[in-house]
Simulated assay, not measured.
Amino acid sequence: MKYESNTTLQVAAQKMRVARKVVVTTHAKPDGDAFGSVIALCEVLKRQQTDVTALFMPPIPSGLKNICGELKLTTYQDGYELPEADLYVVVDTGAWSQVAPIREQLEKYLDKTLIIDHHISGDIPAAFKHIDSKAAACCEIIAKFVDELMAHVFEDKVVSNALYVGIATDTGWFKFSNTRPQTHELAARLIAAGVDHAALYAQSEQTERPEKLKLMIRALSSLELLNKDSAAVMVLRKADFTETGALPEETERFVDIPQVVSSVQVVVLICEPLDDSPIRISFRSKPGKNAVNVADLAANFNGGGHTRAAGAKCDGDLDEVLAKVKNLLTA
């Protein structure tokens, strides 16, 4: 199945206008871009008197919850049933593996499901897809949608803050190679509308627990440099989480740290789950003439993402997964 747009922004926006009840969701363990995309879109739909559900599959990073204003959030739990709706919108992913808890229910409504995404791969056969893989963040696309849906939309503090957090976090606060002129232009519009970017950075990036630092030490202690120091691999085992008291979601940004070494072109972080869930693998690479397409690496584990940032989830033995990753990096 080719993962590409079949619906224009204008047509998709019209579907939202006429829908009386809309469910908006994103991938499990939402990052800033996923969370911001849901919040911005739901806030605008709410203001247009749409009955909207903002559905999240936990965990939700605590630093993000301050940007949702008075918007009610629905957190998925075992036994949750998707409400009947006129339209189901999935943002920042098009992969079944990332919405696994609701897959069985969502499959019943694919004929009225819209995907809005910026990734290069996905396998959810939704009836409507609006994909822009050149966008630095899904919030770049959502900004166009809310602009289409409501006049003076950036004057809404919840919307503008959510969009800014989305584009900032998905570009590493404008450091990553996916940052483009349109990203800075949107950031400028949002700041001009009143976004306090320094306060949002503090809320999003400087509210961590001491346990995260302890886990970071474990990750760096596990680091191996391979292939003439061009590749770095880190592993976090179940014991690392239990002994430090850190949570699985507190690994955010760890995979970026080894890129400070000039010779390192690609980084992989492998995390063993605390329960029976799959092993999580995160991939990152630097741009340049020796750039590694990490989406191709992730595909070896049925994952995907972007050329410079990708991920995968897989079952199996941790050491076997580690060995496979090393083989790929040294091939």
Rank of each mutant, 00 (worst) to 15 (best):
K2T: 07
K2R: 15
N6M: 15
T7S: 05
T8D: 11
V11K: 15
M16Y: 11
V24H: 04
T25A: 08
H27P: 14
P30N: 10
D31V: 11
G32A: 06
D33G: 04
Q49C: 03
T50K: 11
T50Q: 09
V52Y: 02
L55N: 07
M57P: 13
P58Y: 06
I60L: 08
G63I: 09
K72E: 14
Q77P: 11
G79V: 11
E81T: 12
E84G: 02
V89L: 11
V90Q: 00
T93D: 00
G94Y: 13
G94H: 10
W96R: 12
W96N: 13
S97V: 06
Q98A: 10
A100R: 14
R103L: 01
Q105D: 14
I115A: 10
I115S: 09
H118A: 07
I120N: 05
D123A: 12
D123V: 08
A126Y: 08
K129T: 06
I131R: 04
D132Q: 13
C139A: 05
F145C: 15
F145P: 12
E148F: 09
L149F: 01
E155A: 10
D156H: 05
K157D: 00
K157Y: 01
V158K: 03
V158M: 03
V159F: 00
A162V: 04
A168M: 07
T169I: 06
T169M: 06
T171V: 05
G172H: 09
F174A: 13
K175G: 04
F176I: 09
F176G: 05
T179M: 07
H184M: 06
H184C: 00
A188S: 15
A192M: 00
A193W: 01
A198R: 07
A199Y: 10
Q203I: 06
E208C: 07
P210Y: 08
K212T: 08
A219E: 05
S221W: 03
S221Y: 08
L223Q: 03
L223R: 08
E224D: 10
L225N: 04
A231P: 04
A231F: 00
V233I: 01
V235H: 03
D240N: 10
D240C: 06
P248S: 14
E249M: 14
E250Y: 06
T251G: 02
R253N: 13
R253M: 12
F254M: 14
V255F: 06
P258K: 07
S263D: 00
V266D: 01
V268P: 12
C271M: 14
D275A: 05
S277Y: 00
R280K: 14
R280H: 08
S282T: 12
N293H: 09
V294R: 02
N300D: 08
T307V: 07
T307E: 01
A310R: 00
A310W: 00
C314V: 15
D317T: 14
L318M: 11
E320D: 15
V321T: 02
K324H: 09
N327K: 09
N327T: 06
L328I: 11
